[in-house]
């Protein structure tokens, strides 16, 4: 599928949600957390690309933590952006019931940024040591990592 065609069909799938073309080959859609699973189900049902990665963005000045779900179809990239409040621990529905392999991405994001994934089949630590101090999320901008 042509990149622009792919982006157009992604736009159609995102009808009703705010979306912008952030780059030539990219479409960004901003969603409320409760709509995430519905949109992801639509993408999967339409066989639009595959989930490439989940990124966390800690925006201290805005007081929010944004979760970015990147989907790719050829050169076209669709990013679903979920802005959440930083405090208390934000929570969002797990997309594992729809895309099972998202689990490793969610586990990484959960422990690194302190995000709770509801209905996740597995929320064990993936990368951090077993004795890592609880409530220290290393990739948050204000994380204190060195206690001397």
């Amino acid at each position: 599928m042509d990149t622009q065609e792919a982006l157009k069909s992604a736009e159609a799938l995102l009808t009703g949600y705010a979306s912008t073309r952030s780059e030539e080959n990219r479409l960004d859609g901003t969603l409320a957390p409760e709509n995430l699973c519905a949109v992801v189900s639509n993408l999967v049902a339409a066989r639009w690309g595959y989930l490439m990665a989940i990124t966390g963005l800690d925006q201290v000045t805005l007081g929010q933590l944004e979760i970015l779900y990147h989907f790719g179809a050829g050169a076209a990239i669709l990013t679903l952006r979920i802005p959440l409040p930083r405090i208390p621990i934000p929570s969002v529905d797990s997309i594992c019931p729809i895309i099972p392999y998202a689990n490793v991405y969610e586990r990484e994001l959960g422990e690194m940024f302190g995000v709770e994934f509801r209905n996740s089949p597995n929320t064990d630590r993936l990368f951090l040591p077993d004795d890592w101090r609880s409530a220290v999320y290393p990739l948050r901008k204000d994380a204190v990592l060195n206690e001397e």
């Binding site: 064990d124 993936l126 990368f127 951090l128 040591p129 990739l139 901008k141 990592l145």
Partner: peptide, 17 residues
Amino acid sequence: ASVRLGYAHRGIEKATE
């Protein structure tokens, strides 16, 4: 089967900032 990683985790993403 289950997997556990992180034994060679060096915090590079954090270090880039």
